[in-house]
Computed example of a mutant assay.
Amino acid sequence: MSATESTRERGAGSWRADPYTDALRTGHGPLFLRRRDGWMLPLEVERWCAGADTSDMSVLRRCEGSVLDLGCGPGRMVAALSALGCPTLGVDVSPAAVSRSVHAGGPAVCGSVFDPVPGEGDWGTALLLDGNIGIGGDVRALLRRVGELVAPEGLLLAEAAPVDVDERVHVRVDDGCGGSGPDEFPWARAGVAALLSYGQDAGWALVERWTAPGRAFVALRRAP
């Protein structure tokens, strides 16, 4: 196993740890990503475990063809897409998240975006929402990988941080009450400007950008 693969495996293990599993089981937090310096990023467990809201629907309306939701969590987006009759699949490293997604009616498989993915190279649209632009701690590498998953000229609908930020950090899953995941793993945050810069480097072109309350999104098209 390479050093990069080892780091990704540690990250996957943290998402399977008790604080995250417990939060998904109950449907609420508190839950955070805690940096080494003690700063904590709140995770919106209640929103993730609810149905797709108005902001989510602004994403779903822009989907084209079959849709791959990367880091699908408890599956609100794949469930909504399935209800609309759209071919879709969620991918998540957490067995608890995949189980909840399937129970909600959203087809999902357990695995990493960096693992082989069903239908690789044929998906019409990929989703990276709810902070998942941070997966692996390297936005450029993640966007290159997503480019391998979608069809030629496929679409990526990604959520950026709602503030102007570009950081790569190491974090743990933390419940804010003394419970934390066993492993530290790399994570990233990217605002719109940083995401677009990384996207251009990785072969994506901007199609559209829009906002919803407290959230920022971009649509990127894979160059042929």
Rank of each mutant, 00 (worst) to 15 (best):
C72H: 07
P74V: 14
W187N: 04
R172N: 02
P42L: 14
Y198W: 10
V207Y: 03
H103L: 15
D56S: 08
T4W: 11
A193E: 05
P162M: 13
G154C: 07
D69L: 12
R215S: 12
R189G: 00
S58L: 14
A3P: 08
F32C: 05
G111Q: 02
R61A: 15
D164K: 11
G178Y: 09
V169H: 05
D53W: 02
P118A: 00
A212I: 12
A79H: 05
C63I: 12
L196D: 12
H170N: 08
E9R: 08
L24K: 02
G124V: 12
P224S: 00
R62V: 13
S55K: 09
P107W: 02
G178M: 09
V163S: 09
V169G: 02
P213N: 11
S55C: 14
G131I: 09
S82Y: 13
L70K: 03
G51S: 10
R47L: 14
P107E: 01
T211V: 13
W48D: 12
R76H: 15
S58M: 13
V93K: 04
V207P: 00
Y198P: 00
E184M: 09
S6W: 05
L220F: 09
G178W: 13
W187C: 03
P224G: 05
G147D: 02
D130I: 10
R209I: 13
D183R: 07
R34T: 14
T26Y: 08
R8F: 03
D22I: 10
G27H: 10
G85M: 12
G134W: 00
V169M: 09
R221D: 02
P19L: 07
P95M: 09
R35C: 04
S14L: 07
E9V: 08
D92L: 11
G199S: 06
V207D: 11
G154D: 07
W123D: 07
D164N: 12
A216H: 13
W123K: 02
G124Y: 01
D18N: 04
T7C: 01
